[in-house]
């Protein structure tokens, strides 16, 4: 539904996606597995500091965010990104499966939560939900 809306409303409007994860594999995996034509991966970052730099450079509409990262963890990074651009939509992708972490991330301004490991389907469903 959500996908259709975005497509329908804006034609081939491109949504810019920034992928933040300290694992190379995970970054490539997300980039490869997401199946939305309107999503354009504009950058990747391996920690919070890099994420902020890339954010300034690329002004993305959506961000996937790992939580446990060296140099500024995901939770802190979420707060900063939301301050910079309140409309940004953030999908947390983390192996941390406890509820308090999830609540904390959502409270800071994340819009979705996906647990690692995930299947391609789970990833795409989470992204679709984020875009709706």
């Amino acid at each position: 539904m959500s996908v259709g809306q975005v497509n329908g409303a804006g034609g081939r409007r491109s949504l810019k996606l920034l992928i933040v994860d300290d694992s190379n594999i995970m970054r490539r995996r997300i980039e490869r597995s997401q199946q939305f034509e309107e999503l354009e991966v504009v950058g990747t970052a391996g920690n919070g500091i890099e994420a902020l730099e890339m954010f300034h450079k690329t002004d993305p509409d959506m961000v996937t965010m790992d939580l446990t990262m060296p140099q500024m963890d995901g939770i802190e990074c979420i707060s900063k990104l939301v301050q910079l651009k309140p409309a940004v939509r953030i999908l947390v992708i983390s192996a941390l499966a406890d509820k308090a972490t999830a609540v904390e991330a959502m409270e800071r301004g994340a819009n979705g939560f996906l647990n690692k490991p995930f299947t391609d389907r789970q990833l795409n469903e989470a992204i679709a939900e984020l875009m709706s």
Binding site: S23, I25, M26, T68, S94, A95, L96, A97, N115, K116, P117
Partner: peptide, 9 residues
């Protein structure tokens, strides 16, 4: 990543 997953679990 595997260790991360174990830790998350």
């Amino acid at each position: 990543e595997v260790a991360n997953t174990i830790s998350g679990n």
